[in-house]
Amino acid sequence: MTATIDHPAPTSSRLRHLGSLRELALLLMIAALIAGMSILSPYFLTPANFQAIVVGMVPTAIIVVGMTILLVSGSFDLSVGSVLALSSTVVALLLLAKVPIPLAILAALLVGVGFGLANGLIVTMLGVNPLIATLGTMSIARGAALVFTEGFSLSSLPPAFGVFGKTQILGLPLMAWIMVAIVIAGDVALRRTRFLRQVYFIGGSEKAAALSGIAVNRVRIVCFVVSGLLASVAGVLLASRLMSGTPTAGNGLELQALAAAVIGGASLRGGEGTIFGAVLGVVFVALISNAMTMLAVSMYWQMIVTGLVLVIAVAVDMLTRRKS
């Protein structure tokens, strides 16, 4: 059942892995979606639309990396959307106060690390359920962002801060390449590093992991810190693209990331999931919403459809699991 851990094996037995199957199925659906849309809309397969899709995906794709690691460990982080908003306002506030750009960015990232550390400590040391713990910090971070900005967006940031959104490399902005780098690094790290391999064991059975000599609490805290850090990275990149710090940004992003990771094969019970799969989930959801925009489906319907996709993905997941 845990098909998520990579082993070199003959192709036939490899294909039997549920996780690889899931990734393959997603790739096929993505291909079908692209093919279908290029027939339906002449604007779909254009460089401009491609850019729009990729740039729009950046925050979710970065956040999903941390979310997947947490899901594999058997927990999750609902505070990521708010931490993103808070970091984007912190970086903007500091820049407006004439703090040098690198320092402002560093401070924003520390905010993410701080929230991650707080989540991790609350969950492990106080034994609070991740749902409650991160729901609490989610509210705190959002509240803090609104307090700092009195509810307004902070714009007129120094032009040099726009580097992540404006610098184009091979047809994509720098922020997209940062996303690619984070995703690849995350995927390799979760698949291959000893430290993150422990996450699968913790998700498989926390008790058995502790009795195998795995430092369960330490690993879980690090996972939360990674998640918080990545949320603040996404916040800084978003602020750079929009050239403003927005206290209401990233609303609902935590659910989008969760949904994408589950669509990509992660399980809410822990022990399963890959970052590659989760990012495919992000791509899939991004394509669907882009397709609907192209076809002039209203925003409200888009929400309904996204919800349906998630429920169907989870239902299919449950059914295939029951069979095996």
């Binding site: 291959r192 590093t193 000893r194 391999r197 498989g204 058995a208």
Partner: peptide
Amino acid sequence: KTLGLFLDMPIAENAVAAGLSSVSRLGLM
């Protein structure tokens, strides 16, 4: 069942659970 093994994981992963460093080099599995 609850303390010793990771039931949903393969035999191989269970076998190495208490000694991950023996099957990794430079931090890589």
